[in-house]
């Protein structure tokens, strides 16, 4: 009886862990298919300090995605640092530009939070390694 209880406790813990890993690994980053995302930065190699990112959004057909709301968020790879945020404005249909202050040397992750006119949202993530001051 006690032996059975032991094994059922052990088994339940294993199943719970396997379930957690299964859910964790199946998470999708919330990106929409059929949308092309490209970006350019100024300066070309991002550096610590102000950086301007220009984002182009098009459908798979090549049609620009106008009227979207694009915001930028940059986080360092290490916990304990504050993220920085910026808004992008639409330069031309499907082209958005925002300037963000990457205020420390090191590795950054820039997130582009995109909301389409249809209300759909998705994120795109760009990793910038070893940013140096100029």
């Amino acid at each position: 009886m006690v032996r059975n209880r032991r094994w059922s406790v052990g088994f339940s813990v294993l199943v719970a862990l396997a379930g957690l890993y299964a859910i964790g690994c199946s998470k999708s980053p919330g990106a929409l298919r059929n949308i092309a995302f490209t970006y350019e930065s100024d300066p070309k190699s991002p550096r610590a300090g102000l950086n301007t990112f220009t984002v182009t959004l098009t459908r798979a057909s090549g049609q620009p995605l106008a009227g979207a709301h694009v915001s930028l968020e940059a986080d360092m790879s290490h916990a304990g640092m504050a993220p920085v945020f910026a808004e992008a404005r639409e330069l031309a249909p499907g082209r958005y530009q925002g300037t963000i202050d990457l205020n420390m040397r090191g590795d950054w992750v820039v997130l582009f939070h995109i909301k389409l006119t249809s209300g759909e949202t998705f994120d795109r993530q760009v990793e910038l390694r070893n940013l140096q001051a100029t």
Binding site: S77, H78, M81, M104, R105, G106, D107, R129, N130
Partner: peptide
């Protein structure tokens, strides 16, 4: 030294 909040060795 200036601290680098790094992500990966050798990128």
């Amino acid at each position: 030294q200036p601290m680098e909040m790094r992500a990966m060795l050798m990128g």
